[in-house]
Amino acid sequence: MTRYWLAVVSRDHVRRAVELGIAQANHGKRAAVERMAAGDGLVFYSPRTGMRAGAQIRAFTALGTIGEAEPWQADDQGGGFRPWRRSVTYHDAAQEVPIDELRAELELTAVPNWGMILRRGLIELGEHDFAVVERAMVGE
């Protein structure tokens, strides 16, 4: 059964993930990427351009499908940081879409204090919401 995920990550980090064809969430925690399975859908939401600073953008910034490879621990960050990752095939045609353009259609934003839910870093997204975001980002 396909599941759908929304990861909250700064746009700078999303761009790096797309370049590498990977996903990591919740500051590289293993449990986050182990919840994902091959074929699952993934969308990134970026509140800001940078992790601790940067301009506020509040947009969906990348869209992809989790690859077949099992999660692995990377050793390319230096300083002892070894994040867990999954492979992802990103949709090349995906365009950034501000969340405000989709709020009226999303089940996620229909609940009070929906922004607090995003603080979890990685949440399961319903099929309806994933389809809304996908259609907005790639026109499908």
Rank of each mutant, 00 (worst) to 15 (best):
E96I: 01
L42G: 09
G39L: 08
D129N: 08
G121N: 01
R52W: 04
M51Q: 06
T65P: 00
V8F: 03
I117A: 13
V8M: 02
V18I: 10
I99A: 11
P112S: 13
I66R: 12
G78Q: 05
G121A: 02
G54K: 10
F44K: 10
R119S: 01
A55M: 07
D100N: 14
T49H: 02
A136L: 01
H13S: 14
R85K: 15
R82D: 00
A53E: 13
P98A: 15
R52V: 07
G67L: 02
L106W: 03
V33G: 00
E101H: 12
V9W: 01
E19C: 05
G54M: 15
F130W: 13
H128E: 13
V9L: 10
E124G: 06
G54L: 15
A32S: 14
R48W: 02
L42P: 02
T89S: 12
D92S: 13
A17W: 04
D100S: 14
L102N: 08
V43C: 11
Y45R: 08
G28T: 07
A94D: 04
L20K: 13
H91V: 15
W5M: 11
W72K: 02
L125G: 08
F130Q: 05
V14Y: 11
R16W: 07
R35H: 08
P47E: 13
D129T: 09
G115I: 02
W84E: 07
Q77M: 15
N26R: 14
